[in-house]
Write a protein that binds this DNA or RNA. Structure first.
Lengths: 119, 119
DNA sequence: TAAACATATGAGCAACTGTTCAAATGAAAG
DNA sequence: CTTTCATTTGAACAGTTGCTCATATGTTTA
């Protein structure tokens, strides 16, 4: 009991299982990067932008009208989407047209929809 | 000019395109729910938990050792994962075993990995 | 019964995030 | 050149989030 109190580190409950899983799992850094990617999908404004762009290339002004938000707010989010390489920019005069830059975007959205439809 | 200054609402740049996309897009609420789902994937701790559970059913203590975190922190995140129906709990005595509760989890993670591998 | 244990929960706090606002670019038109 | 316009950027602020700590549940064992 006294011995137990000194060592307050938690005992492993299933040591062999934990070791096995620890060896199988990807590196923490890789999983952190993956989480960063999904964080970009985890905002309703960005999700609406991605959904819109899945149908049609759009400029910032179009998006701001479509979403009912200021061009500034949209531009900030587009910067985030560009950083994640989910969106690509094409400049034509003053106007900047955005479109999806990744074939996986629609796939990820589709699977998410499936999950919600079943839940 | 004076007329222009009074009406400071933004003009639509490509009205027909915006209308078309507006009709195609899912409802805002559905996209918001989808964003909420991806928000759950958008945290490195939760991602590590999901990754671990993709190999093996694990109890809270195992997870806390595996992740090097307190059982409390892990339990809080498991509650979030349970709320999103990504994880299921099985109770055996004092011990609660968690496992993936969704076939789509692995698919979503796999596509995310693909995106990172190409970027 | 009481003690030990695995897990869950609530409050509190530091860190992060999305929007607004004002100002800056950069490009076309007068 | 100057003005106008589309977009971008930075600072600031409110709202959110994940962890810690203390405590509460619920279960097993002595």
């Amino acid at each position: 009991m006294a011995r137990r109190e000194l060592e307050d580190k938690p005992e492993v409950m299933h040591p062999d299982v934990v070791k096995k899983v620890a060896k199988c799992m990807p590196a923490d850094e890789e999983l952190a990067d993956l989480a960063e990617l999904f964080k970009v999908f985890g905002d309703s404004t960005r999700m609406r932008i991605l959904s819109a762009l899945s149908y049609q290339e759009l400029c910032v002004n179009d998006l701001s009208v479509l979403l009912g938000m200021t061009a500034s707010a949209v531009s900030h989010q587009l910067k985030t989407l560009r950083g994640a390489k989910l969106v690509r920019a094409r400049k034509d005069g003053k106007v900047v047209y955005y479109s999806l830059d990744d074939e996986h975007v629609n796939a990820i959205i589709a699977i998410g929809m499936q999950h919600m439809a079943e839940g």
